[in-house]
Measured scan of single mutants.
Amino acid sequence: MTFKLIINGKTLKGETTTEAVDAATAEKVFKQYANDNGLDGEWTYDDATKTFTITE
C-alpha cells in the first residue's frame, strides 16, 4: 500500500510517499524521516486517504 506524508513545517513544506504493509510501518518510516529532517510537530492520520500530516 502507498501512504503519503504531508509536511507543513516552519521551514520544510511538501509531501512524500512510502510503500508499507500497514499504517504502523508507514508511521515509523515517516517519523524517522521527520526526525532526520529536524521536524517536530503534531501528527494526524486519515485512514480513508492513507495520509499522515505533520504540522509544526
Rank of each mutant, 00 (worst) to 15 (best):
T51R: 03
T25A: 14
I54L: 14
E27M: 09
Q32L: 08
T51M: 04
T49E: 06
N8V: 09
A23H: 09
G9W: 07
N8W: 15
E27K: 09
T25G: 13
N35E: 14
E15W: 11
A34D: 00
T25Q: 08
K28Y: 09
I6S: 04
Q32W: 05
Y33N: 02
V21T: 13
A26K: 00
E56W: 10
N35M: 15
G41R: 01
I54G: 00
A34Y: 03
E42T: 10
T18I: 15
Q32F: 05
E15P: 05
T18K: 04
E42L: 13
G41T: 02
T53G: 03
V29G: 04
Y33C: 04
Y33G: 02
I54N: 01
N8Y: 14
D40K: 14
A20H: 03
N37M: 15
N37C: 12
A20P: 01
A20Y: 02
T18S: 04
L12R: 09
T2Y: 11
G41P: 02
T11H: 15
D36P: 01
F52D: 00
E56L: 11
T16M: 15
W43L: 06
A24H: 09
Q32Y: 04
G14K: 11
D40A: 13
T51E: 05
L12A: 12
T51V: 07
D47P: 14
T25N: 09
T11F: 13
A48V: 14
I7N: 02
L5N: 00
E27H: 11
V21R: 07
T18N: 04
D46T: 05
W43Y: 02
E42G: 06
T18W: 06
K4E: 03
T2G: 05
K13P: 06
A48W: 09
A24T: 12
Y45I: 02
E27A: 12
T17C: 07
I54D: 00
A26R: 00
T2Q: 13
I7T: 04
T2H: 10
G41F: 04
N35A: 14
A24Y: 11
E42N: 10
W43E: 00
T53E: 06
E27G: 06
N37D: 03
K4Y: 12
E42C: 08
Y33R: 02
G38V: 04
Y45Q: 01
A23D: 04
Y33D: 01
K13H: 13
D36Q: 11
K13S: 10
T51C: 06
A20G: 04
K4L: 08
I6Q: 06
Y33K: 03
E27W: 14
F52H: 02
W43C: 03
K4W: 12
L39A: 04
Y45H: 02
T17V: 10
D47K: 09
I7F: 15
E42K: 13
F30Y: 02
F52A: 01
V21M: 14
A24E: 10
G14E: 08
F3E: 00
Y33I: 07
D22R: 03
N37S: 08
E15Q: 13
F30G: 00
I54W: 04
M1N: 12
F30T: 00
T44E: 08
D22Y: 03
G38A: 10
E27D: 05
I7A: 04
F3Y: 11
T49N: 11
E19W: 14
V29L: 14
E27R: 07
L5E: 01
G14V: 14
L5Q: 00
T51Y: 03
I54A: 02
A23G: 05
E42P: 04
T2P: 05
L5V: 03
Y45R: 02
Q32H: 08
T55Q: 06
N35H: 13
N35S: 13
Q32C: 05
A48T: 11
N35T: 14
W43K: 00
T2I: 13
T53Q: 06
T53H: 06
L39I: 14
A26S: 02
T49L: 09
A20S: 09
T25M: 11
K50M: 12
A20K: 03
W43N: 00
E27P: 00
K50C: 06
F30R: 00
F3W: 06
K13M: 10
I6L: 07
K28E: 12
T18C: 10
G38T: 04
K28C: 07
D47W: 08
T11K: 14
D36S: 09
T44V: 09
D47F: 08
L5M: 05
Y33Q: 03
G41C: 03
A34P: 00
G9S: 12
T53N: 04
G41I: 02
A34E: 02
E56H: 07
D36E: 13
E42R: 11
K13L: 08
T49Q: 07
E19R: 08
D47S: 14
A24I: 10
G38Q: 10
F30S: 00
K28T: 09
F30H: 01
F52P: 00
A48N: 14
G14T: 11
G41N: 01
N8S: 12
Y33H: 04
L12G: 11
E19L: 13
T55R: 05
T17P: 02
G9P: 03
V21Q: 13
F52G: 00
N35R: 15
T44N: 07
L12E: 09
G9V: 12
T25W: 08
T53W: 09
Y33L: 06
T18H: 07
T51P: 00
T16I: 15
I6K: 06
N37G: 04
D47T: 08
K31T: 05
K13A: 08
T49G: 04
T55L: 05
D46A: 04
E19A: 08
M1K: 13
K4C: 07
K4D: 03
Q32D: 08
I7Y: 13
T11C: 10
Y33F: 13
E19F: 12
T51Q: 04
G9R: 05
K50G: 06
G14R: 06
L5F: 08
V29E: 07
M1G: 13
V21W: 12
A24F: 15
K31N: 04
T16K: 11
A48E: 12
G9L: 15
E27I: 11
A34I: 06
K31W: 07
N8R: 11
D47E: 14
A26W: 01
T17Q: 12
V21I: 14
K4Q: 06
T55W: 10
T17G: 04
A34C: 08
E15Y: 14
K50F: 10
A26T: 00
W43D: 00
K31C: 05
G38H: 12
K13I: 11
T49K: 07
T18V: 14
K28P: 03
A34L: 05
L39R: 02
E15K: 05
D22A: 03
F3A: 01
T18A: 08
K31I: 07
L5W: 03
K4S: 07
T11R: 10
G14S: 14
A34Q: 03
Q32P: 01
K28M: 14
E19S: 10
D36T: 09
I54H: 02
T44W: 06
G38C: 09
K4M: 10
N8H: 11
N8L: 13
F52Q: 00
L12W: 12
K31R: 14
Y45M: 02
K31E: 04
K50Q: 11
T51H: 03
Q32S: 08
F30C: 01
T55Y: 08
Q32A: 12
G38W: 06
D47N: 09
N37H: 15
F30N: 00
N37K: 14
Y33M: 05
D36F: 07
E15H: 12
W43Q: 01
F30M: 02
V29I: 15
K31L: 09
T53L: 05
T11Q: 15
E42H: 15
K10G: 09
D36G: 05
F52L: 01
G41E: 01
K31P: 00
A48R: 12
D40H: 14
L39K: 02
D40C: 12
K4G: 04
T18L: 08
F52C: 00
N8M: 13
V21E: 10
A23Y: 12
D36A: 15
D47H: 10
T16D: 03
G14F: 13
